[in-house]
């Protein structure tokens, strides 16, 4: 006679096996395309064009080199410059605002915050088209600065909200202790609040960098010769052989993968904030 206490464990283990299968399948669904595309980016052309080699056996750097020679080297550099400028601009403007939202009570705070939240939902890509006219007048068309200014518009609402929530998480008692021991507001901010907020701010900066690095529509509209990497891929690399395109996708995702690894602890909460 089997006691009821003993039957569940068997079902329990069966369920666990099925469950493990589902987990593995889900992870494969995400990882497999990335792994394959990276392998193909380094595949020798013979292996790629041979129907037999599902996974390439011979690897080469020549795809990457050819892509860089086509102009991707400069485009990558441009992308980095634009992204760094975007981070600097959006933090210079957004950090003080974020601090104000976190630490002050003032009239109109809620409506202002709501406005920022609303602006974050705004499809920023639409500003690129009319901006061209302004940029031509100002001599900003086809410049990296011009792209960075547009990207700053896109990143700014996010930076304000995220820095505000980071500052909120720094206990106010620690700041008050600073005042008690004779620091003024500025000193307290620089010596107490900022160091405590630094890890979160770094993650937010990384995130902003990626945002700009990935943006393609504005970059493609606002540049002609000074292409950023995604704009370059869209306009030039699409005519190149397949294997060169894979190299392009590798360069595109490389910083993203590195940064996911560095900032992974913050990633979920950060996206949580951007979309809440």
């Amino acid at each position: 006679m089997s006691t009821p206490g003993e039957t569940p464990p068997i079902r329990y283990y069966l369920l666990r096996i099925v469950f493990a299968g589902i987990v593995i399948l889900s992870c494969t669904w995400v990882l497999l395309p990335i792994i394959i595309s990276i392998l193909y980016a380094f595949s020798s052309p013979q292996d790629f064009y041979s129907p037999k080699e599902i996974i390439p056996l011979h690897y080469t750097l020549s795809n990457i080199q050819k892509l860089l020679a086509l102009g991707a080297a400069r485009a990558t550099m441009n992308s980095i410059i634009v992204a760094v400028m975007t981070v600097i601009f959006s933090f210079a403007l957004g950090l003080p605002a974020g601090y104000a939202f976190a630490r002050f009570a003032f009239k109109g705070k809620d409506s202002l915050k709501l406005l920022i939240i609303g602006l974050r939902m705004f499809p920023m890509l639409v500003i690129a088209i009319p901006l061209v006219t302004l940029y031509i007048k100002l001599g900003l068309n086809d410049t990296l600065l011009g792209v960075a200014l547009a990207h700053t518009t896109m990143a700014l609402p996010f930076v304000i909200l995220i820095t505000s929530s980071i500052f909120v998480s720094v206990p106010i008692e620690l700041e008050e202790a600073g005042y008690v021991f004779g620091l003024d507001r500025k000193q307290t901010f620089l010596r107490i609040t900022l160091p405590l907020a630094l890890p979160g701010l770094t993650a937010a900066a990384i995130f902003t960098f990626i945002m700009s690095w990935n943006e393609v529509f504005m970059a493609a509209v606002l540049t002609l010769t000074n292409r950023t990497l995604p704009a370059f891929i869209l306009t030039s690399a699409m005519a190149a052989p397949d294997i060169i395109k894979f190299a392009a996708s590798f360069i595109m995702i490389l910083p993203a993968l590195i940064f996911v690894f560095i900032a992974r602890r913050y990633l979920v909460s950060m996206w949580g904030i951007t979309v809440r």
Binding site: T3, P4, G5, E6, P8, P9, Y12
Partner: peptide, 8 residues
């Protein structure tokens, strides 16, 4: 008399 240790 029933062993319920693993019963949900």
């Amino acid at each position: 008399e029933k062993d319920v240790t693993y019963l949900p």
